[in-house]
Write a protein that binds this DNA or RNA. Structure first.
Lengths: 342, 342
DNA sequence: TTGTAAGCGTTATCAC
DNA sequence: GTGATAACGCTTACAA
């Protein structure tokens, strides 16, 4: 009786019956198994009937027997940050091509551990983890799961990274080159490794130029527009002698907040304050003036992470060798100018 | 031998063997079936062993037997538009609570039909469709799939909508109330119903005030920041007599582009040009001046759509009754002011 | 109350 | 070449 339910999806059994062959033969034909030696005539008839009936393979059933779900998870701290969304988008494109679904999620309303548990319950074949702090992850809950980390160092899992050190350095050199000597830094008050490296690169370049940065000019805030706003307000409230003429923000969101603080306070940008962001999200070109920033190839990061992950999943023996960090570059736009310029 | 593979996930069989009961009993205890009458002692021992072994149910296997995947798809035109991302986020929260995974995707690089095919291959139990044009959907490819449409009229599927007509009307009334009489409209050149209604509400209110709008002041462009930029440039290039003093943009992205065009051209906002957006995405408060806009409850829209969908999935007989559109409201911020004001 | 057994749709290993 | 047949991990009658 259930066999004849007209609304039930078409299965290999239905195709088999209609084509007058066994279900196994249908599977052989349709699963694209290269070692399947099926007579051309049989193959053709099976394919015809499958087409005619509108057969669609049940990926879940296939997954059950193959021990795969053909799904991967992507865990980021905040999906509303366009940077992380780009990472997800990049991963999704590659995954889709390889027949994998992507389950994106962020850890705003949950802990990484809890989120990973949910992903494991769904039998995801692997996860991409970005900006969550590999060190804080529960090792045991990640066993029997392939992992690729983005912008995180780890001996435990392969990863793909952007050249965050260079990002900070490029920002510093750009500002230095414009004649700025009183610099400030605004970064997120989180222990995300990639962000830390941006900071470190910035300070290394400053030191190399013989400059230091007094502590009031190093602001750690929430990694958001609001955080940037607050940090810049604090900088603007500094006594004139202490006040910076340029600031590097570790993310574009922070930079957007900083810019807004300046504009609202009537501080000309880049006239009296130069601002460099980092990420080059779409928002950077929406702001007025357009944001000078360091371009991090977020989509490429996501795409490579997905390739790395899927490679591992498909070939268990494959050992990834660490690659070079992806290059970043300065994109000079409207928020930076020569010191004292107008 | 495979039974003893230490890296293999723990199954109900493992728990059963260890607890000295049958696999079915384990399932009875662990599946939370209310009609399961199991002795308290047995239940307790099973739960203990399950905990001890770190048992995690395989959702895919459960789905196979129950004919469910516990996954839903969300299809939107563009995930980089924060409005649609909010819809997805709202849906995701509700779905997660109900044990459903969300497969988000947009139709930038593919057609809705193709995307829906991919979702069906994954056996999703239903889809939420927003801004894709219900009329353009291939009816047949949606059979045996529960569907909820957002901001689209449809006799075929239940839906949840925002009060788009009111959105347009509120924008017009706000501008009219500020004394503006030379208005313009910038909308996306797509046939998304929700956007059309925003437009219609706007024009209805104008007509009610005895105003009309010459065709050069009605601009249809790509639904993006770039589109808004281009449209506003065109408006600014109009002869003085034709030039509007205020404009309503059907989305915040368009408004952001319009604002940028003004700022770049040295046209004071709101001094010489007032701008009203629609959506109230986060970006609205990042811009300087902050964007006056109509708040559409995107997350709530997504959340309700998910609830509606999951209700349908879980209770096949349930027939949704059409609800009222969600209310929208004007959020007056910095981009609107009295006509001729400064 | 618990165990046995069938089956969800697929893949994969065999004989034939 | 092709067809039985046994899994995959789980739910759910039905039997004991």
């Amino acid at each position: 009786m259930p066999r004849s339910d007209p609304s039930r999806p078409v299965t290999t059994h239905d195709v088999a019956r209609r084509a007058g062959v066994s279900q196994a033969t249908v599977s052989l034909v349709l699963s694209g198994n290269p070692r399947a030696r099926v007579a051309a005539a049989t193959r053709e008839r099976v394919m015809e009937v499958a087409e005619e009936l509108g057969y669609r393979p049940n990926i879940l059933a296939r997954g059950l027997v193959r021990g795969r779900s053909y799904a991967i998870g992507v865990v980021v701290p905040d999906l509303t940050n366009p940077f992380f969304l780009d990472v997800v988008t990049g991963a999704q494109r590659v995954a889709a091509e390889a027949g994998y679904a992507v389950l994106p999620g962020d850890t705003r309303e949950t802990t990484p551990a809890r989120h990973l548990d949910a992903l494991r319950a769904r039998q995801v074949d692997g996860v991409i983890i970005d900006g969550v702090g590999a060190a804080t992850l529960p090792h045991d809950s990640l066993s029997d799961l392939k992992v690729v980390v983005v912008d995180e160092p780890s001996e435990r899992w392969p990863g793909i990274a952007s050249d965050a050190l260079a990002a900070g350095r490029l920002a510093a050199e750009h500002l230095l080159g414009l004649g700025h000597r009183h610099l400030a830094f605004i970064g997120p008050a989180t222990d995300v490794h990639g962000f830390r490296m941006r900071e470190r690169g910035f300070f290394q370049a400053l030191r190399a130029a013989g400059l230091a940065l007094s502590s009031p000019r190093l602001r750690r805030v929430a990694p958001s527009v609001a955080g940037g706003l607050q940090a810049m307000r604090a900088l603007l409230a500094l006594p004139a002698a202490e006040r910076p003429t340029a600031v590097f923000c570790a993310t574009d969101l922070l930079a957007a907040g900083a810019l807004k603080a300046c504009l609202t306070a009537g501080v000309a940008v880049p006239g009296r304050m130069s601002i460099v962001g980092c990420d080059d999200v779409e928002l950077a070109r929406v702001l007025t003036p357009e944001l000078t920033t360091i371009r991090i190839p977020a989509r490429e990061l996501g795409a490579r992470a997905a390739r790395l992950l899927i490679k591992q999943i498909d070939d268990d023996a494959w050992v990834p060798r660490p690659g070079k960090p992806l290059p970043v570059k300065l994109v000079a736009r409207g928020t930076t100018g020569a010191v004292g310029g107008e």
